[in-house]
Design a protein around this nucleic acid. Structure first.
Lengths: 333, 333
DNA sequence: TTGTACGCGTTATCAC
DNA sequence: GTGATAACGCGTACAA
C-alpha cells in the first residue's frame, strides 16, 4: 500500500504538500504540482478513504433506503440515484427498510458510523425519530412520497396526479370509474391518491367506487372482484399502482372482458410492468429516475430545505379508450 | 462524539479492555464486562467504523455490482444479498457496471479504497483485470453467470437448464420449437443456453430454429417475427429470458394466436415479469434470492474456491401445454 | 489487564 | 507565497 508519505518522498516534498495538490487546494508552485502528480501516477497512489474519513468526519457515501429493493418503483429511483452519485464521486450504500420500516433504525445507525454524506429514503417518510438517530450533521431526503411535514423531499403531487388521471378517464366519456386504492395503512401515498380520485368524481357528480389493495400484483384480482361486486357495470378501473393495474387487466381478460373495449384500465407509476402487459398500460408517470437524480443533487447542495414537487404526466397506451356506453345508452346526448 | 476512551474512563478501565469487551474477545473478568457494558449503554457509545477500518484494513462493506440495478433479475439477487449481508452485520455498496462493464474498474477501485470485505458481481464475469485491480486481499464472486474459468461463483448450470427446458417442451409433444436466444455478444449466459437447446433438439432429431434478441422486452417481438419467418408452424417458443418470453406472449396474442393453445411459450429466470403476463409464464427458475444469499456466505466464509452450481427447476404455469398437432397429425401414434 | 505505538491523511502552526 | 513539521482523529494490537 502506497501512502501519502511515499509520494512525498518520491516527489521530494512534504506530505502536507501532496495533500494540498491531491485535493486541489492552493499554496504550491506549478513545478511542485507537476512533480507531485508525476509521483502520484508513477507510484499509483490512491487516497485512503478510511484515513481521510477519520480526520474529516465525512465520507463520500450516500445511504439509500428502500422498503423493497426489488420492486420496480424503487429500482427506477435507485438507478437515478446511482448515476447521479457516481457522477459526483459518491458511493451508494443500500438498505432495505422492510414494509413496516423495521430495519430503518439499524441502517441509519450504520450510516451514521460510516459518516455518510446524506441519506435518501424511498417511499418512506422522515420521522422525528429518523432525524434524531441520524444526528444534525447528516442530511436526509425522501423520494416518491407525499410527505406534507415540510421535510426535504422530491415527489409528485399525488393528490393532483390522481385528480388529473380521473379527469382523463372522465374526459374519455367514462362515468362509472372504480378506484383500486392502496393499502390505507400506508397513508402517505394511498390517501392523497384516493382523495384526488374522490375530488374529481365529486366534481363530476358521480359516486366513487373504491376497493383497497396492497399496491402489489396479488392484490389486483381480489380488488377488481370487490369493485365489480360493488358495480358490475364499471367501464373504467383506475389502479394506484401499475402492478395492481396489470393484475386487473389480466383478470378482466380471464373473465372474458376486453381491455379497453369493455373496460379501460389506468395504472400509476409508469414502471416497466406497465409495458409488460397486453395491451400495454396507460398510466400516470412519475419521473422516477429523474427524481432519484434530483434527490442526490438536493442532498449534496445543502439547500435541501422543504419539499420539491416534480411534474407528473399521463401516458396513454393501449389499455384505455372511450366506453362503449352500452349500459348507459345516450344518457347525456 | 463519544469515543472508546470516554467509555474506558467511565468504566475505570483501559481503552484496550473496552475494545475487547465490545468485540467479544477474551481477557477480562465478568465484573469488568458488566461495568464496560454499563458504560457503553449509558454513554451511548458506538464504534467508529472509520477508525476501526483504518487499523484493521477491513470494513464490513460488501460491494455489489450489477449491469443494470433496475432489472428484475438483478433485483432479486440484490434482495438476497442485502438480507444475508444485514444478518451478518455487513453493509452493501451498490454499483452499476453498465452493459459493457464500463464503470466496473472505477467501482472496484472505490471498493478497494473502502477496504471492502468482498465483492459480488451479478451477471458479469471475473476477468484477470478485475482481480488485479482488486488486489489479493479482497475476495470476489460472480452470481448468475456460467463462468467456466473456475473463479468463485454461484450459478445454475445454464446448459443443462436449457437442455431440461427443451426436453420439457419435447415431452409435451412439441417438435417444432423455436429458440429466442440471447445476445451472442454476452457469451457467458446466452451461449450455454443455446447449446443446451441445440443438444436436446439434436438428440430428439429435430432441426433447431434460432433467432437472437437482447434479453430485454423490446427484442421479443422482433425475435418472434424472425422465428416465425423461419418456421410459421412453430408450436412452442423457448425464450432465454422472461422479458423476451413476455413480449412473445403479447405479440402472439396480438397476431391472433392463442397461448398456449396455438403456441406454447417458455421463459427463463422466473422473475416477477413471468407472473405479470397473461397467461402467466411457464419458466425455468433460478433461485435468485437464494443465490444472492449463498454468494454472501461463500464470500465471507473465505472458502470460496471455485464455482458452486445450484439447482434449477422448471415451473409450469399457464403459458405451456401440449401442441394441437394440427400440422403434424398423429405422426407418432 | 494495561499502556502505547501504530495506521494514514489532514490541517493548524511555523519557517523561509 | 511555498513548503515543512507535527498534532490529531479513534480503535486495535502488541509488548509489558
Amino acid at each position: 500500500m502506497v501512502t501519502i508519505r511515499d509520494v512525498a518522498k518520491h516527489a521530494g516534498v512534504s506530505p502536507a504538500t501532496v495533500s494540498r495538490v491531491v485535493n486541489g487546494l492552493v499554496g504550491y508552485s506549478e513545478e511542485t504540482r507537476r512533480r507531485v502528480e508525476e509521483a502520484v501516477t508513477s507510484l499509483n497512489y490512491e487516497t485512503d478513504f478510511m484515513a481521510r474519513g477519520l480526520k474529516t468526519r465525512q465520507t463520500s457515501v450516500i445511504g439509500l433506503l428502500a422498503p423493497m429493493v426489488s420492486d420496480a418503483l424503487a429500482s427506477e429511483v435507485m438507478r437515478g440515484v446511482e448515476e447521479a452519485a457516481r457522477e459526483q464521486g459518491y458511493a451508494v450504500m443500500l438498505g432495505r427498510t422492510g414494509l413496516q420500516s423495521i430495519f430503518i433504525d439499524g441502517y441509519l445507525r450504520t450510516l451514521r458510523t460510516y459518516r455518510a454524506a446524506g441519506v435518501i429514503l424511498i417511499s418512506a417518510v422522515i420521522t422525528q425519530e429518523t432525524r434524531q438517530i441520524l444526528g444534525p450533521n447528516i442530511p436526509i431526503i425522501s423520494v416518491a412520497i407525499s410527505d406534507r411535514s415540510g421535510s426535504p423531499s422530491v415527489s409528485i403531487d399525488d393528490e393532483r396526479a390522481a385528480y388529473d388521471a380521473t379527469r382523463y378517464l372522465l374526459s374519455l366519456g367514462h362515468r362509472r370509474i372504480g378506484l383500486l386504492a392502496g393499502d390505507p395503512a400506508s397513508v402517505f401515498v394511498a390517501h392523497p391518491r384516493q382523495r384526488g380520485y374522490e375530488r374529481a368524481m365529486a366534481e363530476a357528480g358521480h359516486p366513487p367506487v373504491v376497493a383497497h389493495g396492497t399496491f402489489f400484483y396479488d392484490s389486483g384480482a381480489p380488488g377488481l372482484d370487490e369493485l365489480l361486486r360493488q358495480d358490475p357495470d364499471l367501464t373504467a378501473i383506475f389502479a394506484v399502482s401499475d402492478e395492481m393495474a396489470a393484475a386487473a387487466v389480466n383478470e378482466l381478460q380471464e373473465r372474458g372482458r376486453r381491455v379497453p373495449d369493455d373496460v379501460s384500465v389506468l395504472g400509476f407509476d409508469n414502471t416497466s410492468t406497465a409495458q409488460h402487459v397486453h395491451p400495454p398500460l396507460s398510466t400516470v408517470a412519475q419521473p422516477l429516475e429523474e427524481m432519484g437524480r434530483a434527490a442526490v443533487r438536493k442532498l449534496l447542495r445543502a439547500r435541501n430545505l422543504g419539499p420539491r414537487i416534480v411534474p407528473h404526466s399521463i401516458i396513454a397506451r393501449g389499455s384505455t379508450g372511450p366506453p362503449k356506453n352500452q349500459h348507459q345508452p345516450s344518457q347525456e346526448l
